[in-house]
Design a protein around this nucleic acid. Structure first.
Lengths: 158, 158
DNA sequence: TTGATTGCAAACCGTTTGCATTAGT
DNA sequence: ACTAATGCAAACGGTTTGCAATCAA
């Protein structure tokens, strides 16, 4: 890497976190963190890479993956699986969402208020000692529209 | 395919379903259906293929995939994503299960009684018109053991 | 006979890996 | 100087595809 990568304004918490844990501060990491910090909501590794690439085509995809892994280890980001292909990353600062994905039309409903799930999660915890996280996998099903149009209860598709 | 593939005892409902819908009854399809019918619980395409292969090595993986797709279209099987790699197929006759997967130790808890989720699903339906199916994706989280050992609420891993 | 179904091989997508080189500390 | 981090290229697992050959109807 010979090109210069300017450091974003918000890297300070990252920098200290990295240093504390003995990791090195590289331009690539700064860039990727900056991108994650300016992104809203969920973003796939490929999207991160595309944004990186626009600025610095020399940065490699695998570095994006490795950096996302690192940031997840450090607790700065987390990923979720929304049913389709790639995982989606988001800053852990941001509140988690529930994702309802219709397996007929593909519509995704995002639910910010996690209270709907509170009793269910409490029951899982009480009965099985399991601390569930419903934000990690999308919830499959039929959206209102498709349920009205096609009210079968047997079908299950992606 | 020159080898003979005997037809299982339970193919009759499939045969009629196929014929009704204008599909052809091939030995490959019979074999795969027989395997699915003698299998208990969830089974990955690769597992199906391995069992097929043991009996008839000439049958191709892609035929397994295509047949699973077809059977799903016909409503005879459904698939679920349990967090790790491959999808798992099961007969739709069999009751659905909830799968709780610990993202720290990998333990999977299977819950046959879907009542735990009933109120939650009812709430989703009432508030968003969404008919959710919690059996399609595993629920991520921490199992009892890991939650006691490592009670952080921030971490999220596969 | 003829179109659905198969086998094959190759491609696909998202991700991971081994290794030599580079560059933070 | 030392070793973590990178770029590269190749592999991975799971799945899908285009096409010519086959075979159930």
């Amino acid at each position: 890497m010979t090109h210069e990568i300017g450091q974003g304004p918000e890297s300070s918490s990252l920098i200290s976190t990295l240093r504390e844990r003995g990791y090195r501060l590289t331009p690539q990491r700064q860039l990727i963190v900056d991108i994650l910090e300016s992104a809203t909501g969920h973003i796939a590794p490929e999207d991160v890479y595309q944004q990186v690439y626009r600025q610095f085509p020399c940065v490699n995809r695998s570095t994006v993956y490795r950096t996302l892994d690192l940031l997840e280890e450090l607790g700065l980001v987390a990923h979720a699986h929304l049913g389709d292909g790639a995982a989606r990353y988001h800053r852990t600062e941001e509140a988690g969402h529930l994702h309802l994905v219709c397996h007929e039309c593909g519509t995704m409903i995002q639910i910010d208020d996690l209270d709907v799930a509170a009793d269910f999660l409490a029951a899982l915890r009480a009965r099985h000692g399991f601390v569930g996280d419903l934000t990690h996998h999308a919830i499959a099903g039929q959206c209102r529209h498709c349920a009205e149009k096609n009210p079968d209860s047997n079908r299950q598709e992606e």
